[in-house]
Simulated scan of single mutants.
Amino acid sequence: MRVVSLISTKGGVGKTTTAANLGGFVADAGLRVLLLDLDVQPTLSSYFALTRQACAGAYELLARNERDLERLVSRTSIPGLDLIVSNDDMGQLGTLLLHAPDGRLRLRNLLPIFQAHYDLLLIDTQGARSVLLEMAVLAADLALSPVTPEILAARELRRGTLQLLDDIAPYRHLGIQPPPLRLLINRVHPVSADARQIQQALRQVFGHSGGVQVLHTAVPAIDAYPRAATQQWPVHRVEYRKPSGRAAPAALETLRALAGELFPAWVERFAQVSGRGGRQHGQ
Rank of each mutant, 00 (worst) to 15 (best):
D167Q: 15
L181Q: 06
K10L: 00
D102M: 03
E253M: 03
L162I: 14
L62M: 07
A218S: 15
V214Y: 00
R196I: 01
L262Q: 03
M90T: 09
Q283H: 12
P101L: 02
G30F: 01
R32D: 15
V188R: 04
R237D: 14
Q272V: 04
I78S: 07
H173A: 14
S130Y: 01
D119A: 07
R67N: 13
L110Q: 15
Y171Q: 11
H173S: 15
R155L: 15
L202R: 02
L72M: 12
Q280W: 06
S86P: 03
F263M: 12
Q41P: 11
T148P: 03
E60P: 02
L35F: 03
A195V: 12
L110S: 14
L184R: 02
G210R: 12
Q232L: 06
G277L: 01
G211K: 06
L97P: 11
L165M: 15
R75W: 07
T230E: 10
Y240K: 00
L107R: 03
E66M: 13
P234S: 02
I185T: 02
Q92E: 14
R276G: 11
A251T: 08
L165V: 07
A251R: 08
V188D: 10
Q231R: 12
I151W: 02
V214E: 05
V235M: 09
P178D: 07
Q200Y: 08
R52V: 05
A100N: 11
L152I: 14
V188T: 10
V235T: 12
R75M: 05
P249I: 07
A116Q: 13
R129H: 11
R64S: 13
A27L: 01
N87Y: 08
D28P: 03
N65G: 10
Q115T: 13
R158N: 12
I123A: 11
G277Q: 04
L105G: 01
A228K: 04
A193P: 00
L96R: 09
L138H: 04
H173T: 12
L122E: 05
A201R: 14
A27W: 01
H216S: 10
L31K: 15
S74Q: 09
T161W: 07
L255T: 10
P146W: 00
R237T: 11
V147C: 15
I78R: 11
R64K: 14
